[in-house]
Design a protein around this nucleic acid. Sequence first.
DNA 1: GACTGAATCCGCCACCGCCA
DNA 2: TGGCGGTGGCGGATTCAGTC
Length: 749
Amino acid sequence: ELLPPGYNHLLCVKEDEFRAHLKVQLSTKEEVEKWLEEFQNSSTLTWRKARTYPESARYNVYRVDLRCQHKTYSSGKNSRNTNCPATLFLVLKRSMEDRRSRSTDRHMAEGYLLYVNWRNEHNHSLAGADALRKRDVSAITIERLTELFEKGHSPSSALDTIKYDLQEEEGEDYFYAAADRAVCPDLQFCYRLYYKIFQKSYGAPSGEKMVVDLRERLARYNEEHGCVCAQIEQTIDGQQVVAICTPVMQRVHTRVQQSGEMVFVDSSGNCNRKTHRLLLFVTPSAAGGLPLGVLITTSESAATLTAGIALLKRLLPPAAFFGRGDHGPQAFMTGDCSALRQALATVYPGASLMLCTFHLLQAMWRWLWNSHNGIKEEERPQLLNGFRGLVYARTAEELSAAYATLCADPLASKHKNFMKSLLEVYGRRQEWALCLRGNNTNNYVESAVRIVKDKVLHRLKSHNLTQLVDFITTRFEAYYIRRLTDYANNRLINLSAPKCDDVDCQKIVQEDEVNFLVPSASAGGWYHVNTGLSCCTCPVGRTGAPCKHQSAVVQTFGVSETPPLTSTPPLRKLFYEIASGGTAPDDWFVPVEPKSVLDDQRSRGEDAVHTSAGPRTESLEKELDGILGILKKKLQEDTTFLAPLQSFVDNFKKMKSDSAVQSALFSFGKTSCVPTRVHATPRGVLQTNTEVGVQPTAVCLGGRRALGADRPPKSSRRDHPYTKGERAKAEPHSLSHCVQENTSQGKTH
DNA sequence: GACTGAATCCGCCACCGCCA
DNA sequence: TGGCGGTGGCGGATTCAGTC
């Protein structure tokens, strides 16, 4: 039962239950090695080499003495040594054709050349979970893991897939299969294999050889695409820079209008084991931030970044930045990194440079918390709030006044270094003051950085520069093709227009064809909406994002100029063309709407009530009068109707728009009074919950819920009785909270 | 040098609690 | 009641030291 099937075995001597001499019909060393592997699989035994013999022996082709894996040379704390006496001696005899043999063994002539001397006397358990988890991972499992890695799986997701497949194949026997390391490896093995494979595929981790490998890879990539999409260059100071502008990025340059207006740039490190920096160039669009170029450098110095950006500039298509070409975009927005800003100014002198307000405020808070600057703890929030007033000033006059107030503040003027720092920052106000410019944050590029780390690198550090470049040209590109395809097919779920329920639509004033005055929902003022430009003067709309005031105008007036930051057929077609590089039939993007009432015979008969105010309206009015009469009569005769009708009147008064009334009328009498979130529903009753239900036993016996793996309620937290003092307070991550509580900012990365 | 188990770091996720 | 930011345990990712 222990021997592998498919071979001819001959049992020559069986000394007792545990000792035997076998012969197997094999003739080459390779066949013997394969037999041994299959024997280890069929017997669940693992053998190690105890002694080998020279191959050129006179009588033997191959000979090896094997020992059980539980017989090791040393016995440490973690050793698996049990001093197991089991052995397996293999001897492959030379074939009769090669020599003249005087042997009387008649089996040799029949081809039984492998002699097996098996002493199966193990002094440990052979079948338990602990025995099986010590086995070697089988070659088939390694092959399967390798395939999964090549398809983009991370070590953990590959292992999950293996386990899932095993569960499907083994059914009830999965419990036993899962214990066997040969078919179900441990996570650490997966990690080691992952890095070993990529070391092989992507060559040396660094040095000259890596650069040579990378140059060859880039040359092949450019050849495949028929144009120069990526290049590597060595700077004067010996640094490496790699610039990438993939075909999709080139199409974003030439087809997306915003690429000529605003480009966000941010850098990120920690993407691989070396100190490479990754710079992303991103433009905003209706489908979120879209990449315009990627730069990978080995240094953050201004000289290296300048060389890198200049290299990227040479790769860009002639109509880059929506036709502006070498002039670059109208503006770049960056964090407060002087080297990057200096490099951008050198390569694109015509583009204005803006600062992200979030990074600016964060930098100021860190400056205030730097003990070298001598700002007392209680003084920090006041100084930051004064500075925040400058950043968020609504007009140039307000900005000047806020600056004057802060300068006159005795606390600020007390600190000379603060005043010096403030003066320096105020001198660059054109770069950051919201009243002097439009956009206030580079969240688009932050999002793109996250995509690289999450979707491209799967939160793993890349093996080397070659792999990082390979991932950018394959996975990163593929991610944006998928995203744009989803947008083109109207499959992005988070692009719906903002809700405008709290905007008083009745008060909206139309100034001309595209200009509207919309009342503020919270503050008492008015905002100006331009539907042609898709802009609003509110804090959200000012950034170019869709806001509730634009939604209110679209809903109330149904203007034809739909804001570009929503999904329209031409825009979807454009993004399809950027993603694919081809063209799609126009009717693919036509929205699903009822056909014209004039065209549709059936609509003429049935839907006329919705479009004309004919005799049907008169009869409806009569029916409404009748219903109101019935309700009034019920109110007078039956006191139980008093509360429900009062509720109806109250709810009606709360409705602020026609659409809300229409929606309520459509759903009148159709909805159930049963609350949607039922917390204690008995078994057998239909539950309405958004969570995937589990068996009650899953909660009782195990699983994540039962383990309480999530954050426990504060009430349940108990420190050990021997704990001295109070629990250490965690540092908060929110900047606003830090300012409010006057604490330093906790680590977020 | 290859492999393994243990230790350690760090980001995700789901509940808490506040606010509108 | 829903939304949203804060928080901390858990587990994935990585490193280290010992074993084979």
